[in-house]
Design a protein around this nucleic acid. Structure first.
Lengths: 153, 153
DNA sequence: CTAGGAGCTAGAGTCGGCTCTAGGTCAACC
DNA sequence: GGTTGACCTAGAGCCGACTCTAGCTCCTAG
C-alpha cells in the first residue's frame, strides 16, 4: 500500500480523458464534479482516480446529448449521498428515453440516406454500362426522383 | 388541370414543414434552396410543392447532423444539374458514414445508461423487499459502483 | 538568473443555428 | 379610415459548450 491515492494534475487528466484543460476547469465551475476537486500546493488542482472515473461517466452522458445542467443535477444527487436513488433513477430513465428517441430518429434518417445513396449508385451504374442506348432514369433536372422510403410510394 | 402549380406562402410552408418562418428565410439566405424561391406580388415568397419536398430532405439531413454548409453544397450540386452525380454520391456517402458512426456511439452510450438504470433498479428493489435484514450493495457514498459494461469487469 | 513550462483566475470570444426586433408595406375587413 | 394580420428587410441577440487571452505564480533546468 505504497501510493495511498495517487493524484493527477489537470494536464494528466486532460490527457487521459481527452477533455481539454479548459473544459476541465469549465466543468468544475459548472459543478459537474461530485467531490469538490482538491487543491495541491500553489492552488493547483489535484484529481483522484475517482474523479477520472466520474469524468468517464460524464463524457458518455455528454456524448449522448445530456446537457450540462442535467449532468450537474445528477452530480448534485450523487454528492448528497444515499437516499435519493429514486431521483437518480428517474433522471437516468429520462435520459435513456431521450437517447432511445434520438436513436430511432437517426435510424430513420439513415434509412433515407441509404436509399438515396442507392439511387445514385444505380443511376451511375446504368450510365456507365449503357453509355449510348437510351438511358433509363432520365436524371431529372433536380434531385433524384423519389425523396425516400415512405415518401410517395 | 386547373391548378397549374399551387404556390404556398411562407406561413403555409412553415406550418407544413414544422420549420419557423425565420428558419425558412434563414435557409434561403444560406442558399440551401435548389431553385431560388419565387416572389409573388409585394415581394412575398411563394413556394412550390417541389420546394416543400426539398425541405423535407433538408430536414432529414439536418436532423441527422449535416451542417448547413454541407447542405448548401449539396443544393449547389443539384442546382447545377445532371453531370455531377459522383459528387453528390460522395457527399451523401460521407454523411452516411458520419451518421453510422454517430449511431454506433449513441448505441454504446445507451448500453451504459441502460446498465446504470438496471443497477439502480436492482438497488431500489432490494431496499424495498428487505427493509431491515442487512442491506446488500451498501450504496457506496458516491455513484453506483461499476461505471458500466466494459469498464473494469 | 533567466527562460520555459505548467498551472492559476477572470472574463472575453467563438461557432452554429436559429430567433427576435425594429420599422415598413400591403390587402382585407368593420 | 383605422386596425388587424401576414409578410418584407437588415441586423442584433441568444444559447450551449467550450476555447482562448491576459496577466499572474510557481518550479525546474541550464
Amino acid at each position: 500500500m505504497a501510493e495511498v491515492t495517487a493524484t493527477l494534475s489537470i494536464g494528466q487528466v486532460a490527457e487521459r480523458t481527452g477533455l481539454s484543460v479548459h473544459a476541465l476547469r469549465f466543468y468544475e465551475q459548472q459543478g459537474v464534479f461530485v467531490s469538490p476537486v482538491r487543491r495541491g500546493p500553489g492552488g493547483r488542482r489535484s484529481y483522484t482516480e475517482d474523479d477520472v472515473d466520474w469524468l468517464g461517466v460524464c463524457i458518455i452522458l455528454r456524448a449522448s446529448g445530456m446537457p450540462l445542467p442535467a449532468l450537474r443535477r445528477y452530480a448534485d444527487l450523487v454528492r448528497e449521498g444515499a437516499g435519493n436513488e429514486e431521483e437518480r433513477l428517474a433522471l437516468l430513465r429520462e435520459h435513456h428515453g431521450q437517447v432511445t428517441t434520438q436513436l430511432d430518429r437517426l435510424t430513420q434518417c439513415l434509412d433515407l440516406i441509404t436509399f438515396k445513396v442507392g439511387v445514385y449508385e444505380d443511376l451511375l451504374d446504368q450510365d456507365r454500362r449503357a453509355a449510348g442506348p437510351g438511358r433509363r432514369r432520365p436524371s431529372v433536372g433536380g434531385d433524384v426522383p423519389a425523396s425516400g422510403p415512405g415518401t410517395s410510394a
